[in-house]
Structures are given as structure tokens and as C-alpha cells.
Design a protein around this nucleic acid. Sequence first.
DNA 1: TGAACCCCTTACGAAAAGGTAAGTACCGCA
DNA 2: TGCGGTACTTACCTTTTCGTAAGGGGTTCA
Lengths: 123, 123
Amino acid sequence: MAKAPRRGPYICGIDAALDVVSGKWKGLILWELNAHRVRRFAQLRRGLPGVSEKMLTQHLREMQEDGLVHREVYAEVPPRVEYSLTEHGRTLNQALGPLGAWGVERMRREGFAAVDVAETSYG
Amino acid sequence: MAKAPRRGPYICGIDAALDVVSGKWKGLILWELNAHRVRRFAQLRRGLPGVSEKMLTQHLREMQEDGLVHREVYAEVPPRVEYSLTEHGRTLNQALGPLGAWGVERMRREGFAAVDVAETSYG
DNA sequence: TGAACCCCTTACGAAAAGGTAAGTACCGCA
DNA sequence: TGCGGTACTTACCTTTTCGTAAGGGGTTCA
């Protein structure tokens, strides 16, 4: 797999938090899992327009290692895998609340279009 | 300069906020400027151990374009340039507060060493 | 005389991140 | 028989990011 050489010593909390959120789709994954509680791989894929299968699995693995995401595999005939947030994932989501609100305000200020994908909890 | 192809359409507020904070030193720059109110180039450089002059100016320019940082140039004999946070920069800093607290908790949980640089407002 | 400080800029290259396309193995449905 | 759905993995390539090193033009300090 040869990825994720992260987890360096951090200078402050922002540093340590941004390390686990930086990644093109991680914020969105957090949001999707927070909104729906439980999602399967193909559901997440459909919820993140433009993501490739490779990036989705890669990000999910890293978030699992970081203790944000729980992965439940069911040994069934068509394989079924369910993803959900752990307790740490949920608290991270709460901590991201004010940042999301600031971002929404920035979008309004700068006149950026919001690509709507689904209803969000970040406003 | 050929940098910063950012400012795409965003999917949610988190997306829009992370865009302006992602960058190896931006979180630290925000923190330094918040702690000291006003800093000169060389002072910031000394406050961010390991940063190169190129990355520092590059990040400062981007943050200026994003409306987070104010740059004041004094036409003096040894050139003097002072950086400070704009109103948007200050509100962003406040929005980062909970995230910083979450990061500190994560560092404690995972047993990561904190590289101390100066006194911080993020705990 | 030269050394260092100030605030950058430019050129070059390495490393990391992300994208594309294909393959895997098994199943239900028409 | 073949297509689509399930959840990935692997190889390869491009883009983006970061770092290193050098220079510049003026000044004060020793």
C-alpha cells in the first residue's frame, strides 16, 4: 500500500487535527457518515461525485487507522461492508462545526457556488 | 508565480474552509499572528522552525489573497513589512478553536510529543 | 573591507498526492 | 452467455506541493 507517512510530532492541536482531515475527500466522508450514520462502500461512492475507488478505499483505510471510522465486514455472498463513525469521529465532526460555518460564510462572501450533493448538517 | 489553482466550487463549508488552511505552515502562521497580533517577516521565520523563505512568502501571499492576512509595507531604509490578521483571519482562528482542542486531545490520547515553540492560545 | 540583516524572487528537483484503467472473484438476472 | 453489482487491489502516470540553493539591492555594524 505504501501510503500515509504521517503522524509526525505536532507543534499544536491544529497541526494534529489537520493531519487527519487533510486529504481531498476526508471532510466529505466525515460529513456523509455523520449524516447517514452507516454507509456501504458503493453508497459513499455515489455520495462523493468524482471520487475514484482507489482514493475512497485509501482514505477510508487511513481514517480507520486514525480511529475515526469503524469498518464492519459481513461474510455474505455478495460481500457487504458497512462504514460508520467511531466516537472519536463523532467528536471530530462536532469540532469541525464552527469551521464549517465559517466556510459557509466564506462561500457566501466570495460568491462561490455550492455544489449540492445532499442535505448537510453543516448548513 | 504560477501557484494556487484553488478556489474551486465547494461541496460544503468544511471544503471551503479547509481550502484556505491546507498548506504545511498555514495553521502555524495563523497561530503566530493570533498570538502576537503583528509580526515581521523575520520574526515569523524564527517562529516557524524549519520553514523556508520561499514557503513563508508563498503561504503569506495566498493567505493575503484569501483575505486572512494584512500586509503593511513601510518604505523605509531597511525594508520593513508587518503582517497581521484581518477580521476574517480572526474569525477563522476562533472557528479553529474547537478543532485545536480536539487535536490536543488526540495528541494526549495517542501519546504524541508536542514540539513546543512558544506559548499558544490553542492550549 | 566585508559581513550580516532585510524581504523577498527564481530555478531546479524531489516527494507526496491524486487520477486512470484494468483486473479479481463471486453472484443474480435476463 | 453476458452484463451489472459487490468491494476492492495493482500498476502506471500526471499534478501539486515542498525543499534547496542561489542571487539582489540597499543598509548598518565592526
